[in-house]
């Protein structure tokens, strides 16, 4: 499985196994834990072009609405329609079935600015 990179805002991006220049984006296990039960996911339009830090999606938990930001520049090539019917996939499998969008990455160099899993775990521990 490809390496996952994390942002300080608790998004992750995982490069596609076929190395076709796309990546899947979701939120970390820590983030879903903080949000609690997720009850709604607002998915963006396929074809939307995002700049790093742009709002990519909005999720609603029982506590609050939160925006998901694009970890890198890119164009949305797919969205996880399963989240419309079952937003709780984000709780049950945040790093797998609970992905939000698939992005065609336009600036792969930005990935180097994100954290690897071990660094992210340290980052999260410092928050607690």
């Amino acid at each position: 499985m490809s390496a996952v990179r994390f942002t300080e805002d608790h998004e992750w991006i995982r490069l596609d196994d076929d190395d076709d220049g796309t990546g899947f984006i979701g939120i970390s296990d820590y983030a879903q834990e903080q949000l609690g039960d997720i009850v709604f996911v607002e998915l963006p339009e396929i074809g939307t072009v995002l700049t790093q830090g742009d709002e990519a999606s909005v999720i609603e938990s029982v506590k609050a609405a939160s925006e998901i930001y694009a970890p890198v520049d890119g164009e949305i090539v797919a969205v996880n329609e399963r989240l419309v019917e079952d937003p709780s996939l984000v709780n049950s499998d945040a790093l797998g079935e609970g992905w939000f969008i698939r992005l065609r990455i336009t600036d792969a160099g930005q990935l180097d600015g994100l954290m690897d899993e071990a660094t992210y775990q340290d980052f999260v521990e410092d928050l607690e």
Binding site: L35, S66, E67, Y69
Partner: peptide
């Protein structure tokens, strides 16, 4: 993601 961080 916007402010999921725990309240201090």
């Amino acid at each position: 993601m916007s402010s999921p961080a725990p309240q201090p």
